[in-house]
Amino acid sequence: MLELSGVTAGYGETQVLHGVDLVVREGQFHAILGRNGAGKTTTLKTIMGLVPAKGGEIRFAGDSIAGREPYRIATLGIAYVPETRDVFGALTVEENLHLAARIGVGRAGGWSIEKVLAIFPNLAERMDNGGNQLSGGEQQMLSIGRALLMNPSLMILDEPTEGLAPIIVRQIFDKLMELKQAGLTLLLVEQNFHFALNLADEVSVFGRGQCIWTGTPDALRMDEDLHKRWIGV
């Protein structure tokens, strides 16, 4: 479904990604772990076209997408839930959802505003509120709900649990588990080790702007050396 080979990218003069190789198969829940500065967020931004790839190949569903504009990549079927959630504060919750539904209409996936509100009932009560009036947890739900409404074939999430209360983290975990069981392809960047490992089918460990290791969650749990060097739990 998604394949990165030898991707390099960075900001201005600073190179952050030094040849990232990554494969996400259809229907897979793939998690990326690694320390701060390992290049995880930059990898997601490069996939979305927000950070231009300087070298290498990015293929999505057979198409080469490196160098395309973000809106084209989104239209091809990748939905992005950024670390900063990026809910539109000047728009109501309803408007936020409608914008995302605009390109999701008529696609496989079957997500509608009603279905999103059914899995995130909190949002239903806040439809007329501005995005800037939501709590952190509600913003995260809206950001995920928005991504679902695009009816994507791949959803990528950047640290969805960051800064949230344990009870909200639990809710998000359950929803992601449901999405996984429904067969959606997911790519998750996380610092929360257990959260990621309990969801993922396959895990990649990033360090120094490269993908260092890829394998099953069980294999990662047993490899203590890998932990110490690249994750530090």
Partner: peptide
């Protein structure tokens, strides 16, 4: 309005 507030995220919604 979405584009004024955050053009990168607006693009990520396919705009």
């Amino acid at each position: 309005r979405a584009g004024v507030e955050n053009d990168a995220m607006a693009a990520c919604l396919g705009i």
